Simulated assay, not measured.
Amino acid sequence: MTKPDILCIGSVLWDIIGRSTLHMRAGSDVPGHITRLPGGVAMNIAMTLVNFGLTPALLSAVGRDPEGDELVGEADRMGLITEHLYRSEDLPTDAYMAIEGANGLTAAIADAHSLERAGTKILRALEDGPLGSAIAPWDGLVALDGNLTRDLLSNISASPLFARSDLRVAPASPGKADRLLALVGHPSATLYVNLEEAGLLCQTAFDTAPDGARALIARGVHRVLVTDGGNLAAECEGAVLRTAQPPEVLVTRVTGAGDTFMAAHIASEVQGMDAQSALTRALNAAATYVSGGTPS
C-alpha cells in the first residue's frame, strides 16, 4: 500500500458547472458552456496537491453506481489513492451544480447527502485499519471540508483517531461555515476561510482580512488564513499576523479557487517554504486557477 502524504476527507463528487462570459442575475437565460468534472472540496484539494507533487488519499462516500465508478476511475487516473473510499451500495454519488457569469457565481446547489448519511463509515481506514487506530493514530496532515456534518466534525475534533493529526479545515461554502465552530479550540486546526465566512464564524462583518483573522484567533482558533478575493489576504497564529496581496488577473472561473489556495499553501509548507513565501505562493496559485490556468 502506498502511504499517502495527506488525507483529504470530505466531498468527492461530480461538478456540473455552467459558465457564461456575460454578466448574470437571478432569472438570466444566456449562452455559455456546461462542463462536468471531478469536484467537491476534498477532491479539489487532492487534485491540486497532485499537481504540486504530493500523494493524497481520499476518504469519502462514493456510490457503486455508474457515476461513482467513473469518478473513482478518474481519480485513479490522476494518481489519487482511492482504496479507502466508502463505496455504498444504496447511496448515490453526490453532485454539485453551479452557474457562473462574468460577474462571478450566480447560484449553486450542493447535493452532498450521501456523504452526510455515510457519517463515520468514511473513517473506517483510520479506526482499525491501514491508516491508523485509536492507539496508533494517523500522525500526518489531514484536509477536512465543511461538507461533513457538524456532528462528525465535532467527533473528529475530540477523537483519539486525530489526536496527532495536523488538521487543515475549509468550509464548503458560506452557508456551511458555522459547522467549523466545532473545531474552534482544537490545538492543531488551521482554518482556511474567506472574509464572508470569517464574519459568519464571528457573527459580525469585517472590512479586511487582517481584521477577520485577528478576530478568529481571539475566538480561540489555533491558526487561520483569510482571503478576500483580489484584496489583501492574511494569516494569523497567536500574536503573529502576516499579509500578502494577490496578483491582479482576469477572472474566468471561481468554483474551486479557495480549495486551490488551501492545497497550494499546504504543499508549500510541506516542501519547506517559510510562512510568508507559502502564503504568497498560495495566492499566486489561486490567481492562476481563476484566470484559467493550472497551478503547480
Rank of each mutant, 00 (worst) to 15 (best):
S188Y: 05
E248K: 13
A143L: 09
M47F: 11
D29W: 01
L167H: 07
G53Y: 11
E83W: 00
T35R: 14
L191K: 01
A177I: 00
A234M: 05
N194F: 01
H113A: 15
L241Y: 01
P66Q: 08
V30F: 06
G293I: 13
D90C: 10
T252L: 15
R168W: 13
E89C: 10
G212K: 06
T35I: 13
R25P: 00
D29I: 12
R242I: 03
N44V: 13
A170H: 07
R253F: 05
M47P: 00
L279E: 00
P31H: 02
R179N: 06
A125M: 05
T120N: 12
A75C: 15
G146D: 00
A257L: 11
S154D: 11
A264K: 11
L59D: 03
V12C: 11
A46L: 12
T55V: 14
N194Q: 05
M273R: 15
G199D: 04
G63N: 03
G104Q: 10
D259M: 07
F162P: 02
P92M: 13
T243H: 04
M1W: 08
L241A: 05
A177H: 00
F162N: 04
E67P: 04
S154K: 13
F206E: 04
R36V: 08
D139I: 09
L195S: 03
A213H: 01
V254I: 14
Y289L: 11
A112V: 13
R168P: 01
G238K: 07
R179I: 02
L58Q: 04
S277Y: 02
R164K: 15
G256Q: 10
D145C: 10
D15W: 07
T204S: 08
L22D: 13
A61K: 08
T252E: 15
E116S: 11
T280F: 02
G185A: 09
H33K: 14
L183R: 00
A158I: 10
A264G: 14
Q271I: 06
L22T: 12
R64T: 11
V226N: 03
S154W: 03
Q271N: 15
L80F: 06
D151L: 12
F162Q: 06
A215N: 01
E127G: 06
R281N: 13
I156Y: 06
